[in-house]
């Protein structure tokens, strides 16, 4: 039994330690907002926070998390997250929406560290998150807009 703090709750997961966090979240805990896209940290659809830092859950083994605190799209909260989600909706960023949990987790992590990211900062923080619908122009606009609102 592996114990992990997920969204502020201590969860017991009956699985082998090498099981990727992605599948523990999705198939064991039924937290399906975190998406599978590639399985090798190439697309970012599975991005969650480990102690506030964005990580790819598809290559993070549950046995390696220890006392680290995991936050998923279902549990992300606070001013930054709420602002990002609100702006994402207002600008109609998503098309299919499948990658957007991961995009939002990456964006929230970026804005939590950097209150006024420039375009180069956005490129660096977000280029690990693929969007096959190519909603990138709106993702960029939404991050800038969220930064403006958080500053106000």
């Amino acid at each position: 039994m592996i114990k992990i703090n997920i969204n502020g709750v201590q969860r017991d997961i009956d699985a082998e330690p090498e099981m990727p966090l992605l599948w523990a979240l999705r198939d064991v805990l039924h937290l399906s907002g975190t998406k599978f896209g590639c399985g090798m940290a190439q697309c970012g659809a599975c991005t969650v926070h480990l102690d506030g830092q964005p990580v790819r859950s598809c290559v993070t083994a549950i046995g390696d998390i220890g006392a680290g605190k995991i936050t998923t799209i279902e549990g992300v909260s606070g001013n930054v997250a709420e602002t990002v989600q609100a702006v994402w909706t207002e600008l109609d960023v998503p098309q299919c929406g499948y990658c957007q949990s991961g995009q939002i987790m990456s964006a929230v992590a970026l804005l939590s560290e950097n209150q006024k990211p420039g375009d180069a900062d956005i490129d660096a923080a977000m280029s690990g998150n693929l969007c096959r619908c190519a909603t990138y122009a709106r993702i960029r606009s939404a991050i800038h807009e969220a930064a403006r609102r958080l500053e106000a």
Partner: peptide, 18 residues
């Protein structure tokens, strides 16, 4: 605005994988 954006920002929209 699209009526269906919000569930795509909080992980709640179900796809076949879900």
């Amino acid at each position: 605005k699209r009526f269906d954006s919000k569930p795509k920002t909080n992980g709640s929209l179900p796809y076949t994988i879900d």
